[in-house]
């Protein structure tokens, strides 16, 4: 189990893995995620969304951005390698129904988790407008796949290297100003992007859901490490989420909590990079 069937480099630092996981492939629904651990003894448990699944083949697709130690270790795996532990599918599935016009906003790596959700809304008979944002063209992922789903696709880059030179909130605001305004918005991406998407739709009272990417340990409701403030309540992202009403989430608190281990992680990443560098030099030096 958990053998890597196919590895694809989607961009400089985004990797896609298709992994054998038949039980998860059979049960999973859009919006759910898995917890992945590269090795049982000292590895860290990290959450990753199930970007796609093929129940017949018994495989799931994970798409991740290399940001730290564990994602670096995962990016170093090859086809045929085994990921020691994958637990899932976790979290509540996205509530998908026919609402009318649904705007799906994806930023950076957030496009990966957005893909199955957009697909679901489309299959449920909605008009699906997709807005994709990235820092530059090279970092844009899944454009082809999203274009196949979208009734309308808007691409934004921060530097204007592709599509509109804008932040995703600009076209989102324009859509809200039109009549009829969208019936529902799903925004997935960096916390700051989700925060501003929620702020953009708030004055128009368009229901806006976001998918939160807090730090997790167990992913089953046992530790409370993933907790966020939603309205006046504390919620556990792994069991109560990962999707919440974006107008109620305390994003500022969440962003602070995400930085809890920043210094330790930076050190780990630095050591990891050094080790990779040494390994590369050594292999270059080999005859």
């Amino acid at each position: 189990m958990n053998t890597i069937l196919k590895k694809t480099q989607l961009s400089d630092d985004v990797v896609q893995l298709r992994v054998a996981a038949p039980l998860i492939a059979e049960e999973r629904k859009p919006g759910q995620f898995v917890i992945v651990q590269v090795d049982s003894d000292f590895g860290e448990r990290i959450p990753l969304t199930i970007a796609d699944a093929d129940a017949r083949e018994g495989s799931i697709t994970l798409i991740f951005q290399v940001v730290g130690k564990t994602t670096m270790r995962m990016a170093a795996l090859k086809e045929g390698d085994v990921i020691e532990n994958i637990l899932g599918p976790l979290g509540r599935p996205t509530h998908i129904e026919k609402l009318g016009t649904v705007v799906c906003v994806g930023g950076g790596i957030g496009v990966a988790p957005l893909h199955p959700i957009a697909q679901g809304f489309k299959q449920a008979g909605n008009k699906v407008i997709i807005i994709l944002g990235a820092r530059n063209q090279k970092l844009l992922i899944l454009e082809k796949e999203m274009r196949a789903i979208a009734d309308e696709l808007i691409i934004c880059t921060d530097d204007g290297s592709y599509g509109r030179k804008a932040l995703v909130t600009e076209p989102l605001k324009e859509l809200c100003q039109q009549a009829p305004k969208p019936d529902f918005v799903v925004a997935i991406g960096p916390p700051i992007m989700m925060k501003f998407c929620a702020e953009t739709t708030r004055p128009f009272a368009v229901p806006t859901f976001v998918s939160l990417n807090t730090i997790m340990v167990d992913g089953t409701g046992m530790c409370g490490g993933c907790r966020v403030t939603v309205g006046d309540e504390t919620k556990f992202v792994c069991v109560d989420g990962p999707e919440f009403d974006g107008h109620k989430v305390d994003f500022d608190n969440m962003m602070k909590r995400l930085r809890a281990y920043k210094t330790l992680e930076d050190q780990a990443r630095h050591t990891c990079k050094l080790q990779q560098e040494i390994a590369r030099k050594e292999s270059e030096m080999k005859p």
Partner: peptide, 21 residues
Amino acid sequence: GLPKFMNIPGENLVGVFSANE
């Protein structure tokens, strides 16, 4: 397995943990 919190202000600050975590 579900940790209880105290429901007091400041409980979601960075550096507050359940014993489980």
